[in-house]
Structures are given as structure tokens and as C-alpha cells.
């Protein structure tokens, strides 16, 4: 698989604050890659450098074989191949959804059909509504429609489902997978660990301007081999036991109880547990 984004030794400071302190990343064609990290970890700065919105202080960056710091006509051809969905915007309130999407289609060499894009994001019945009449979730779907209208090879999604209800989030995830299946590469930043787990092929955790780990959601932080926690009620007390062999342990419990074990549960650490552990350990 070819590499779509390649970053090495990326540096960016604001005054004395080293927002990005040597980030290395490789993002491959056709994957959904999630970048996770607390506020102020350097996530937004990194992504905005990749999007060409900010200049870097050091390191090398290649996005679709192009340095995003370049300006001029070459940059325009590059922007023709990427789609950016920013965090909340409130623009174009006086245009209908279809007018906005149709107009943006005019910026690109190879745009998708505006009505098909509205179908894809589930806004067809709002095509003739003014932007300012949309709900938060509809507004976000319009943002996505504007981000993908140019048939991008690479899509940046910044906190795409903030403010969505659970049903809308599921529908949205389906849309993102569909875009990936059509061949697009997606770089996602999100605060929702369940979103990263559901969508991402690989995740990177960033903190204090450095990448701590890059892995699949299932393997991040040794999650696949982490101890499981078994809990049950015995003698009126809730008991817990950490174990690397939960099946064996439960079989033993089962033998002891001669049947049902009261309030039995066994769980592996969630992605969120692992993430918080990683971020927490970095704070020391």
C-alpha cells in the first residue's frame, strides 16, 4: 500500500510552548486513521500543518506527495485532491443546502454530483432549506457534503460527530466507511474513543506534542493481552479479580458456586481505559 501522509520530526512552537515536539506519522492509502489526544496535546496544530493552514518550524511533511507549506498554483492543484471538514462553522446561512453544495462543486476539477452527495449524507429532504434553519447535526452533515464534493483522495475530519444523537452518529459512521470503501483515505480527529474504535483501522495517541503509540484499536497499549477483570458477588460483597486467564478463573468460580455466579461480569479494558492510562502515565 502506498503512503498518503508522511511526517517526520515535525516541530511547531508558539512562543515558548512546544505544541508539536517531533511528530512522526505514516498514513497509508485507503485507511481510516484516528488521531487521539487531550486538548492542547498538539493534535489540532499537527492536522492544521498537514492541511496547509499553518507553517511548521521544522521537520518534513508530505501529503499526497506534496509539501503543504507550498503556495501558489501547485497548492491549488493539491487542494483539488483533498477535502477538509473543519470544526463547527456557521457560514452560508442565506444559501440553501443545494446552492452551497452546487457552488462548491464549481471549485473542483472533478466534482461529485451535488444531489448524489446530499443523498449520501442524508440531506436530500433539506436541499432547499436555508443554511441557518438547519439543526446542529444537519449543519454538520452539510459540512461533510462540502468537504467531499470535490471527490477527494484524502479527507480530513475534525471532530465530525460532536453534537450528534446516537442514531445520527451510527448513520454518520456508515457514511465514513462508505467513503473509505470508495478508496478515500481518512484522517479523523475525535474525542470519542468509541468512535475511534468503531471506525479506525489504526489510531495514534498524541500527548505533549509527541506520538506515544500507533496501533490498531484492538492492540493499543497492549490491550489485547491486558488483564481482564472478573467481578461477582459473594457473601454480600462485590468482589473483583484481575486475571490473564478469565475463562479458567470463571470455570473455577462456577465449580465453587455449583451453578449461577451472582452478578458475574468479565471485561477487558476498553479503548477508553487504555487511552486514559496512556495519557495519565504521560502526565507524571
Amino acid at each position: 500500500m502506498s503512503t498518503v501522509i508522511s511526517v517526520s520530526g515535525l516541530q511547531k512552537s508558539y512562543g515558548t510552548n512546544r505544541a508539536v515536539a517531533g511528530v512522526d506519522l505514516e498514513i497509508r492509502q485507503g485507511e481510516i486513521f484516528a488521531l487521539l489526544g487531550p486538548n492542547g496535546a498538539g493534535k489540532t496544530t499537527t492536522v492544521e500543518i498537514l492541511e496547509g493552514f499553518r507553517h511548521r518550524d521544522g521537520g518534513t511533511v508530505s501529503v499526497l506527495g506534496f509539501d503543504p507549506a507550498t503556495r501558489g498554483g501547485a497548492a491549488q492543484s493539491w487542494r483539488d485532491r483533498i477535502g477538509i471538514v473543519l470544526q463547527s462553522t456557521h457560514d452560508a446561512g442565506d444559501l440553501t443546502v443545494l446552492e452551497s453544495v452546487t457552488h462548491f462543486a464549481g471549485y473542483y476539477t472533478n466534482p461529485k454530483n451535488p444531489r448524489e452527495v446530499l443523498d449520501l449524507v442524508g440531506l436530500s429532504d433539506k436541499a432547499d432549506s436555508l443554511g441557518r434553519t438547519l439543526s446542529g447535526g444537519q449543519r454538520r452533515r452539510l459540512d461533510v457534503a462540502l468537504g467531499i464534493i470535490g471527490s477527494p483522495e484524502l479527507i480530513f475530519l475534525d471532530e465530525p460527530t460532536t453534537g450528534f444523537d446516537p442514531e445520527a452518529r451510527r448513520a454518520f459512521w456508515g457514511l465514513i466507511r462508505k467513503l473509505r470503501d470508495e478508496g478515500a483515505t481518512i484522517l479523523l480527529t475525535t474525542h470519542y474513543l468509541d468512535e475511534a474504535e468503531a471506525l479506525a483501522d489504526r489510531v495514534a495517541v498524541i500527548n505533549h506534542g509527541k506520538i506515544i503509540e500507533v496501533s490498531t484499536p484492538a492492540n493499543l497499549g497492549g490491550r489485547a493481552t491486558a488483564l481482564a477483570t472478573v467481578s461477582w458477588r459473594e457473601g454480600g460483597l462485590l468482589r473483583t479479580q484481575e486475571t490473564d486467564s478469565p475463562t479458567k478463573f470463571i470455570a473455577e468460580l462456577s465449580a465453587r458456586f455449583q451453578g449461577e455466579i451472582p452478578e458475574l461480569s468479565a471485561k477487558r479494558p476498553s479503548l477508553e481505559d487504555i487511552y486514559l492510562r496512556m495519557i495519565g502515565s504521560e502526565h507524571e
Binding site: F53, I84, L86, T89, H90, D91, F104, Y107
Partner: peptide, 11 residues
Amino acid sequence: FGTLKRLRGTP
């Protein structure tokens, strides 16, 4: 409103 930033991200 972010209108300009959005435009900046297009060709």
C-alpha cells in the same frame, strides 16, 4: 464564522 477558513481549504 469560519467562511474564510473553509474557502482557504478549497482550490
